[in-house]
Structure formats: structure tokens, C-alpha cells
Design a protein around this nucleic acid. Sequence first.
DNA 1: GTCTATACTTGGATAGAC
DNA 2: GTCTATCCAAGTATAGAC
Lengths: 194, 194
Amino acid sequence: MTTLQELSPSARRIADAAQVLVQQVGYNGFSFEHISKLVGMRKASIHHHFASKVDLGVTVAQRYTHQFNDALRHILTSVKLAPQRLQAYADLFETTFLNDHHLCVCGMLGAESNSLDAAVNQEVRHFFQLNLAWITDVIEEGLASGSLKSPHSALVLAETLLSLLEGAMLVGRSMSAPLGPRRIGDVFLSSLIV
Amino acid sequence: MTTLQELSPSARRIADAAQVLVQQVGYNGFSFEHISKLVGMRKASIHHHFASKVDLGVTVAQRYTHQFNDALRHILTSVKLAPQRLQAYADLFETTFLNDHHLCVCGMLGAESNSLDAAVNQEVRHFFQLNLAWITDVIEEGLASGSLKSPHSALVLAETLLSLLEGAMLVGRSMSAPLGPRRIGDVFLSSLIV
DNA sequence: GTCTATACTTGGATAGAC
DNA sequence: GTCTATCCAAGTATAGAC
């Protein structure tokens, strides 16, 4: 299985194209032929970098999770208060959505999970677990320091916020004038902010 | 294009099977062969009832929307207060999710929308529009009668609730112990209920 | 209405030349 | 690393017998 560090320039272009396709049409919606057209290489050449479609799917999910994790760590260093940290978090989804109504890679793969290889599903679960842990920590600190207030536990609030943002992207896809993850997230966050 | 009234018993069994498959693996995740096995008929026989896969997809979305609409009207007649109406609404999603972690048909199709025929997408948009209008009406009545309270508009709250429930099903699929749409919905609704 | 048989296309994957 | 050529399976769809 290919890991992140070993990606050659060509492999990176392939993974980039595959990620966009996953966000646009899902794992079951694209083929090696689609990637071939996007990167200007033949199908056989793609197989040289990724032996199977599952390998490619796993790599896309791993990279996405890794990049997302970097963004989460950056928020912690650049934003100090829990309410603003959660708004910055919602902005990550907003940015993705504003890019041609792309879905979250793992949101899309999660929807398709019943037809995916276990190796891909494992990466998707890792993404959600990582996100839930991060949000929970932020909310817990906010509740403790008094910048947030709620009768619910931090973990329950975290699953609520994550569900809300993933759902806002999904529902927003089928609307002519969606509010988007940022504004939808604010509706919920405004009930938590002191 | 086949419409709801004309469905023969065989066509109904095929549409039922197709609906389950959409909820499990998505439109791009199933084939006529899968349906063939589920209903015990050959692929050619399925084509006799549905000329194309798009026809089948449209019928599935139409029927689902129609059944959902019946459930929404039933809530209005059997439940009188806005808070309880919204909880009953969340229970519709909970029931679907508890059935083997099935997704909402139109939630799944919405995720795949970029690869679907326009005729299918139109039905998906109709489903969301119908739901948003229903929720908006319920919330508007609740705000007017004083059973609900919020600084946000009914329409914004409706999109928030719908996004939350769709997202709770999607995210819940990849979790070992998801809270589920009902409990997730309650977290948000509790901030609205007076 | 259902079947067998089949046409046609696409998709994932491999062999081997360059 | 990339290519052409090819294999094989699966997927949508149709023709025609029963």
C-alpha cells in the first residue's frame, strides 16, 4: 500500500485528480478513464502508480485526513478562543463547499461506505474519529473556561456540529441558494456562545 | 416515464429493491444484476418494467418523496404542537437509520448528484424543497404561537434541521456508536423549545 | 410478463515494448 | 515511467421465443 511520503509527482497529480472526482461524483462514480483524461496519462500508467482502485481510494482518504489534520492544528495555534476556533472549523467546510459545491471526501465515502473496501472505510472512520476528538477537546475547553455554555456534553455537541456541517454540504448541493456550512454552523454555534 | 399509479406488483417489487439498494450503496453502487438477485427475476424482465436505469431512479425518488409527504401530513393531523411535530419529523429519519443504517434516498442521491441524470436530480430537489417548506411552516407556527423561540428565521432554522438530520445519518454510518438522528436532532431542538 | 441469448460499452487490470 | 494492446468481467440494453 502506498503511503503519503512516497508519492512521486505523477502519483500526486493522480491522487489530486482522484480526490476531486471523489468530491464531485463519488468513488463509484469515477473510473481510471476519467482520471486518465484529467492528468493526460493512459490507464496503464495510472496502474503503475496505484495497483488498484482501492489503493487509490485509500491514498486519497489518507491524504485528505492528513491535510485536514494540519488545518486543525493550525487553528489551535492561530485562534485562541473556543467560539472562534469552532467558526474557523466550519470555515474549512465552507471553503470546500464554495469550490464548485465539492463534498467532503470522507462525507462522500461515508455515504458510499456499504459498497467500499474495508481499507477505505477504515480511513473514513479515522477521519471522523479525528474530527470528533478535535471538536470535543475545543468544546470541553470552552465549557471549562466559560466561553461556551450548554446542557449537553462536549462529545454530543461535537457529533452534532460535525453532522450539521457534513449535512449542510450534502443538502446544499441540491439547493439553488444554500446557506452553506458556515452560516448553517453559526445557527447552531450561536446557541452555545455565551 | 413510469408514474406512481401505474406500478404493477412486479414493478413495485423492483422499485422496492432498487430503493433499498440506493439507501445501502447508492445509485452508482448497484446494477440490474443486483436487483435481479433480490427480486428473483432476470435482467431483461426488469427492463420490461423500467426501460432504463434512469427511469428506475426517477421512480424510486418519486415514490420515496410521495411516501415521505404522506408521513408529513400524518404528523400534522396526529401531533398538534410544533416542538413535538419536529421531534416526530426527526423520528422519520431515526426509523430509516435504525433499519440497517440506511440513508435517506434523496440524501444519497444528493451526494451523487453530479453524476446523475437531470431527471433524477429534479426529483431530489423536489424532495428537499418539500421538506424545507414543511419544516418552515411548522417552525413559523411555533414561533408565532410561542412554543418555539429563536433569533433566526424559520427558513434558516429549517435548513439547519434538515442538514442536521441528513448529516447525522451520513456521519453515523461510519461510527461504532452513533447517537442517531433523533438524539442529534434533540440537541438542536432543545435550543429552540421554550 | 418472463425468459434465453446476445450485442455493445465500459471498467479494472496485466503483458510487454520503448 | 509511459505507452499500446489486450484480457476479462460487469453493466446497460435489446431481440425474439415462450
